[in-house]
Computed example of a mutant assay.
Amino acid sequence: MQNLAFPLHFSFKVLTPSNDFSVFDANNQEVAYTRQKIFKIKEAIQVYQSSGRQNLLYTINADRIIDFNASYTFRDAAGNVFGAVKRSGMKSLWKTHYQTSDAAGQTVFSLHEENPLAAVVNGFLEEIPLVGMLSGFFLNPSYAINDAQGRTVFRLRKLPSFFERKFRLEKVGEAAPEQEQLALLSVMLLMLMDGRDG
């Protein structure tokens, strides 16, 4: 995924058994398709160039069975490790918090919810029949992706929708192409975890 045209848009159906979705750029061109393997003891996520699943770009694998405080390794199609993201366990009980690092283990980004209370209320209301559909239209969390200096470089927003989960990733700061790649994979993982947890 090179020369990405932001903002990027993510969309997947809520009434399907899978947790797969496509990523489209600002020109409505598909730039990635994410497939989460089900019934795996450890998380195993595959990222393809398109929904045709002809060209595998990346894999994301968890280092443990239980995802509490788990680390997820990013590998390219040749199996080379180029980064990882770690979920912060205790912080994640109240709000989503991930740390993204490069191949050398240096922190590149910190991802967190900007309004954790809205996410908690949204999660509660989604469990109530009919009300849950409305909560997806009015209560939509946003996430900041900050660099190592604390500056917001990307912002992920959940968009209002009734029958689909839709997100938009905006680039609001400066980032190198390899950093865009790390941020995008971290966001993909976040959305898969968010979809699975509710």
Results as ranks from 00 to 15, higher is better:
residue 1 M to F: 10
residue 1 M to R: 10
residue 9 H to F: 15
residue 10 F to W: 06
residue 10 F to M: 01
residue 11 S to G: 12
residue 13 K to T: 10
residue 13 K to D: 14
residue 14 V to D: 05
residue 16 T to L: 14
residue 18 S to N: 11
residue 18 S to D: 14
residue 18 S to Q: 12
residue 18 S to L: 05
residue 22 S to K: 11
residue 24 F to W: 04
residue 25 D to A: 05
residue 26 A to S: 10
residue 27 N to Y: 08
residue 28 N to R: 08
residue 30 E to V: 03
residue 31 V to N: 04
residue 31 V to Y: 04
residue 35 R to L: 12
residue 36 Q to W: 10
residue 36 Q to M: 12
residue 37 K to G: 13
residue 37 K to L: 15
residue 37 K to M: 15
residue 40 K to S: 15
residue 43 E to W: 14
residue 46 Q to T: 12
residue 49 Q to C: 06
residue 51 S to H: 15
residue 51 S to W: 10
residue 53 R to P: 02
residue 57 L to S: 00
residue 57 L to K: 10
residue 65 I to R: 12
residue 67 D to V: 13
residue 68 F to D: 11
residue 69 N to C: 03
residue 70 A to W: 07
residue 72 Y to C: 02
residue 73 T to A: 01
residue 74 F to M: 04
residue 76 D to P: 09
residue 77 A to P: 01
residue 78 A to I: 03
residue 83 G to K: 09
residue 83 G to E: 07
residue 83 G to H: 04
residue 86 K to D: 11
residue 88 S to G: 09
residue 88 S to Y: 03
residue 89 G to V: 13
residue 90 M to S: 13
residue 92 S to T: 05
residue 95 K to Q: 13
residue 100 T to E: 00
residue 100 T to P: 04
residue 100 T to Q: 01
residue 101 S to Q: 07
residue 102 D to M: 01
residue 103 A to N: 00
residue 104 A to K: 15
residue 104 A to P: 07
residue 106 Q to A: 05
residue 110 S to H: 06
residue 111 L to S: 04
residue 113 E to H: 09
residue 118 A to K: 09
residue 118 A to E: 12
residue 121 V to K: 06
residue 121 V to Q: 09
residue 121 V to L: 11
residue 125 L to R: 06
residue 133 M to A: 14
residue 134 L to R: 11
residue 137 F to Y: 14
residue 138 F to A: 11
residue 139 L to H: 05
residue 140 N to C: 07
residue 140 N to T: 09
residue 142 S to G: 04
residue 142 S to W: 05
residue 144 A to G: 13
residue 145 I to G: 06
residue 148 A to Q: 11
residue 148 A to P: 05
residue 149 Q to F: 10
residue 150 G to S: 02
residue 158 K to Q: 15
residue 159 L to G: 02
residue 159 L to W: 01
residue 161 S to T: 06
residue 163 F to P: 00
residue 167 F to N: 09
residue 174 E to M: 02
residue 175 A to N: 03
residue 176 A to E: 11
residue 181 Q to M: 06
residue 184 L to T: 00
residue 186 S to N: 11
residue 188 M to D: 08
residue 193 M to Y: 06
residue 193 M to C: 02
residue 195 G to E: 08
residue 196 R to D: 03
residue 197 D to K: 14
